[in-house]
Amino acid sequence: MGFDQFVADRLDRLLGYATAITCDKHLAQDIVQNVLMRAQGKWERIGAMDAPYLYVKRMVTNDYLSWRHRRAAREIAVERGELAKHVPSMADPADAHAEREAMRARIAILPRKQRAALVLRFYEDCSDAEIAQVLGCTESTVRSQLSRALQTLRTHELARSATLGVHS
């Protein structure tokens, strides 16, 4: 597949993925742009792979998880954490939108790698093996990252339901 074709097919999806893991559309845009420019230079190799999309996704993920974006990621998480305090706690729990926003906020403050694993599973529908490949770790690490993330989200979910006096 040629580079231009790849971009035409996958750019939008890639932006969605990057936005979901970074929780910041501008950071996501920067990362995707930079990665694609780098990928273009090596396209002869990447394009010949079985799964170029998986490889590019790996580049995006690595870039986000690298030290370069550590500070940005922390700032985003803090900001989102602040926002979360104000938004949904008093909302009607039956309000699906509020539920979803509350979950979004909780996901946004997860550790970066846990969130990446979560997005790969629930947005990209990747298998453990594929996630391991993207994150450059073992499958058992993937499973532990996912279960830690789910554990955190579940704890928050329960606490929230209790506060609101509903049974989930």
Binding site: L11, L15, K25, Q29, L36, R100, I107, L118, F122
Partner: peptide, 27 residues
């Protein structure tokens, strides 16, 4: 809860910038 997570992540991804902007920048 998994459905909720799925919806939340999809909502986050919805925020992405317009791919045409990125395309123009790449060019």
């Amino acid at each position: 809860m998994n459905d909720l997570i799925r919806q939340a992540i999809a909502a986050e991804a919805e925020e992405r910038v317009d791919s045409r902007t990125v395309l123009a920048n790449l060019h």
